[in-house]
Design a binder for these strands. Sequence first.
DNA 1: TTGAAAGCGCTAACAA
DNA 2: TTGTTAGCGCTTTCAA
Lengths: 349, 349
Amino acid sequence: MFTIKDVAALANVSPSTVSRVLSNSPRISEETKERVRRALEELDYHPNVFARGLVTNTASSIGVFIPPGMREFFVNPFFSEMMSGVSEVAGRAGFDIVLSTSAQDEEDAVDRMIRGRRVDGLILLGSRDNDPVLEKVALYSFPAVLLGRPARDGAISFVNNDNVQAAYEATMHLILLGHEKIGFLGGAFNLIVTIDRLTGFRKALFESGISSSPQMEISSVFLEQGGYQGMMHLLALPTRPTAVLASDDVLAFGAMRAAGELGYQLPDDLAIIGFNDIRLAELANPPLTSVRVHMHELGAAATEMLVGQIHESTLGVQSKIVESELVIRKSCGFQRANQMPPSYQDRVD
Amino acid sequence: MFTIKDVAALANVSPSTVSRVLSNSPRISEETKERVRRALEELDYHPNVFARGLVTNTASSIGVFIPPGMREFFVNPFFSEMMSGVSEVAGRAGFDIVLSTSAQDEEDAVDRMIRGRRVDGLILLGSRDNDPVLEKVALYSFPAVLLGRPARDGAISFVNNDNVQAAYEATMHLILLGHEKIGFLGGAFNLIVTIDRLTGFRKALFESGISSSPQMEISSVFLEQGGYQGMMHLLALPTRPTAVLASDDVLAFGAMRAAGELGYQLPDDLAIIGFNDIRLAELANPPLTSVRVHMHELGAAATEMLVGQIHESTLGVQSKIVESELVIRKSCGFQRANQMPPSYQDRVD
DNA sequence: TTGAAAGCGCTAACAA
DNA sequence: TTGTTAGCGCTTTCAA
C-alpha cells in the first residue's frame, strides 16, 4: 500500500506536488504532471480516504437514515426503488452511500454520522411527530433533506408528495364508485405520511357528507402481515367497509390476502386502493389500483437537493413536491363514465 | 464540534488519558475515568471517525458491492431482503454499511473501497465468470465474502444456495407433473447463478430422457420486463413450452404477465416456477410456486462470515451453503399424490 | 496511573 | 512553478 510520499519519491518531487497533481491544480507544469502521473500509475496509487477526509473535513459520502424503529421499511419495495434514485445521483456526484444501521439508539446513530463526520449530508426517512433526528440536524445545521414532510414547516428541506391531496383523490375515486363505508389502513399514526393520507381521506369523506368513524381507521406495522391483520379487524366490524384505502401497497396486499381468505371477491365484494404503485401492483390479483408516487424520482430529487446543499453550504430551506397520480386498475371495479370527473377519464389503464 | 483536546482540558488531563478512557483502558483510575466521563458528557463529545480510522487503519464499516452492470438488482426484492440480513448483523457488530455507487468502472469502484481503506471488508454480489473484482480482492487479500458461488473453487469465501440441486428439484417437480416441453428463463448467462440453475435444469431433463433445446433457454435482464419479453419469445416458439422455470421471481412475474396477456390460463395452460420466494410470490395470481432461498439468512450469514474474517484477520477460505426448499403453491397445478416423491409430500402449502 | 511526543496520510498556507 | 511546514483528531509508544 503506497502513500503519497512513495509517489513523491519515485517522481522526484515533494508530496505537496503530488497532491496538486491529484487535484489537477493548474499551477503545475505539464512536464512534472506527466512525471507524477507515471509514478502514480506505476505504484497503482489510491488515496487514503480517511487521511483526506481528516484534513478537508469531508467524507464524500451521504448517509441514509432509517429510524431504528422502522427497520421493516428496509424490505418495502418503496425503499429499494427510492434507493435506486439516491444511488443514481449520488454516484454521479461522486458520493458513496452510508446506511446507518448500528446503535439501537437513534440519537446515537445520527451522532455517529454527523458528529463523527462520517458523511457530508443526510437523507432522512420516516418523518414523525417530534422527530429527534430533525432537531439534531437543525442543531448542527447539518446538510440534510427529509424524504417526506416535516411536522413543522420550515424546519428542514424536504422532498415529498402531496399526500393529503393524493389520498383525497383516491378516496373520492372510491366514493364516486358508490362506496359509503370506507376503511383506512395506515402505518403508525405518529408518522407524518400516515397523518397526511388520513387527513386527505377524512376530507374526502367529509366533503361527501359521509361520517367517519375511528373504528374504520386502522394503524398497523408497515408489513404485509400488518395489512392482513388490519383488514381482518375491518372485516370483523358490525358494518364492514365495502372499500379500503391502504396507505401502502404492501399493506394493500396484506388486505387482499385477508379478504381472499375470508372469501370476499375483489372488486365485487370489496374495493381496495394502495399507495406507491410498486412494480408488483400491476401483477396482483386483481391488479391493484394505486397512487403512483414515483419512488425513484423521490429519491433522486432528494439526493440532488442534498448534493446542492453540501456544495453551496448555505442554501436555506428548500422543498419540492413530486407529482403523484392515481393509477386505476381492477381492484375497485369500473366506474360508469358519467360518474367520473373529467380529470380521471384519461387515466384509466 | 469538540475534540479530544477540549475534553482533556476540561477534565484537566492529557489527551491520551481521554483516549484511554474512551477505550476503557484498565490502567486508568476510576476517579479520573469519572472525571473524564463527565467532561465527555458535558461537551457531548463524539470521536471523529476519520481521525481514528487513520491511525487504527480501520473503517468500522463494511462495503456491499454491486457490479455497475447490475444496477437493476437494486430494485429486486432479493436485494432488500438480503440487505436486511446484512444490516442486522453488521449493526450488531458495530459496522456501518457502505454501498458502492459511483464510478462506472468497477475496478475503480472496488479500488476506492479497498485501497482507499473506506471499508474493512466487502460483501460481493453478482458472481460472474472471470470476475475482475474477485481478482482484486484476492490480490490484496482483502476480507471479502461472495454472496453466490465463485467460478473457481477456493478463490474466495462464499455463502450460497445449492442452486444446481434446487433447480434440479424444481424441474423434477415440473416433470413429475407431466410436462415435457419446459422452458428456462434466466438472467445473464455469464452469471454463475444462471449457470448453476441452468445446469440443474438440464440435469433434470437429461435424467428424465427429455431432450433440451437452446431455444428453450432464454437469457434476459433481471427485471419484470425481462421475464415478460423472454416469455413472449418462448410462447412464440413453434412448439411452445407447457412449463417454465424462471431463475428469479421477478422474471416469473413478468412471464405470468406475458402469459396472461396472451390469454393463457395458469396453471391449466402453463406452469411456472420462480426462484427466491419473495414475499409477493404468495400474493400473485395464481400464487407462485417458488424456490425459497432464505434471502435474509443469506445476507446475515455472509455478513457473519465477513465480520469473522475481519476480526481474526487470517481465517482462510470458508464457505456455507444455506438450505433452500421448493414452496409449492398454485402456479403449476396439482400433482397426483402417487406421482410425488415422498420428500415433496409435506411441503405442499 | 498518567503525560509527552510522534505519527497515521493527506492538504494547504506560506515561502521561495 | 515547486518545496517546506504545520496540522487535521486521534492512538500509541515511551517515559516518568
